[in-house]
């Protein structure tokens, strides 16, 4: 059998590893079989992850996109093709603008505050002091608490008459009377934002703590001996060294916050009116209460598009500017 180029490649390596009494041709055939077996193995290895991805990501996503172009209801469950009607209705509705605005305020405020709070607490908890281990374990509590429990807890904290928030704020003379922070449209969004910041910041703390401690002390020493003050050391040495972690953490918290459902649902169910309605709560309302899968699907697609645009722009911007270096 005249060896092909491919076989020639194989035969070079084979020539060195001939079994005793084996002709080179036999050895080539053996290697070819091995090669085929390896290819089959590779295909076999790649199938389960692709099947899983297809079943768990691609199919639901494609189905949501399809649904967003259809109209159905509880009593007429078979989806009828509606073209762009859902999108048209959404993009011209006041509710959509409210949901979009709330989602943006909610995400930006929560992520920004979690970044600052996470960074500050990470640096504080990295200092050497007594009881630091206890504090470090306690700071994770909000993060591990189930969202529903946290929601109920904050609802109690905000209770106009029995809650400690008004007791403290009133005692300090900051508020007059007994405002219902969750019960009035003007303050409800801010109130759930504060709860969400508290709930989520420990993850940032943990990430930044690990990253902060990974910055070599020699670097800081060197900067100090060059005459940098503490702030300059932080800004020009510590922060750039932490940049990769910060980048990832901010991206993750943004996506999580944007999609975070439990807290708002438990605390206000999107009310009063639509004042705390964000994408996930509104999608839930349309899908499971109004049973309008088409509209819910369109809201879902819009939120995926928004997040994708953000992610792409964010990553490209960071790559261009070299991150936070």
């Amino acid at each position: 059998m005249p060896p092909t180029v491919r076989n020639a490649d194989v035969s070079i390596s084979v020539a060195e590893r001939l079994a005793p009494g084996e002709a080179p041709d036999q050895a080539v055939a053996r290697e070819k079989r091995r090669h085929h077996r390896q290819t089959a193995l590779r295909v076999l290895c790649i199938v389960p992850p692709i099947a899983l991805l297809g079943a768990l990501v691609v199919y639901p996503l494609a189905n949501a996109v399809y649904l967003s172009f259809t109209k159905s209801s509880f009593i007429n469950p078979d989806p009828d093709w509606a073209g762009l009607a859902n999108y048209q209705a959404i993009l011209t509705s006041d509710t959509f603008l409210t949901v979009l605005k709330n989602s943006l305020i909610w995400t930006v405020a929560v992520v920004a505050a979690q970044f600052v709070l996470g960074l500050a607490s990470a640096i504080l908890l990295s200092q050497k002091f007594k009881g630091r281990l206890v504090l470090r374990s306690m700071v994770i509590l909000p993060w591990i608490m189930p969202g529903v429990i946290a929601g109920v807890l904050w609802k109690l904290l905000y209770d106009p008459y029995l809650g400690p928030v008004n007791a403290v704020a009133g005692g300090l003379g900051l508020v007059d009377g007994n405002p219902a922070w969750l019960g009035q449209a003007s303050t409800a969004l801010a109130a759930v934002i504060i709860a969400a910041i508290w709930k989520g910041f420990p993850l940032s703390t943990i990430m930044y703590m690990a990253s902060y401690q990974g910055v070599p002390n020699e670097l800081r020493e060197a900067a100090r001996s060059d005459g940098a003050n503490a702030w300059q050391v932080f800004l020009h040495v510590t922060l750039p060294a932490m940049a990769p972690t910060i980048r990832t953490t901010v991206l993750l918290t943004t996506v999580w916050t944007f999609n975070y459902f439990d807290l708002v649902y438990v605390m206000t169910a999107g009310g009063p009116g639509t004042s705390t309605e964000i994408f996930p709560t509104y999608i839930y309302r349309e899908a499971f209460q109004n049973v309008r899968y088409g509209v819910a699907g369109a809201y879902g697609v819009i939120s995926v598009v928004l997040l994708s645009i953000f992610t792409v722009v964010y990553l490209r911007q960071l790559n261009k500017s070299g991150g936070l270096d």
């Binding site: 209770d159 106009p160 008459y161 009377g177 007994n178 219902a180 969750l182 019960g183 206000t268």
Partner: peptide, 8 residues
């Protein structure tokens, strides 16, 4: 009535 009926 107590404040916060919209959340009650």
């Amino acid at each position: 009535s107590p404040n916060g009926s919209a959340g009650a």
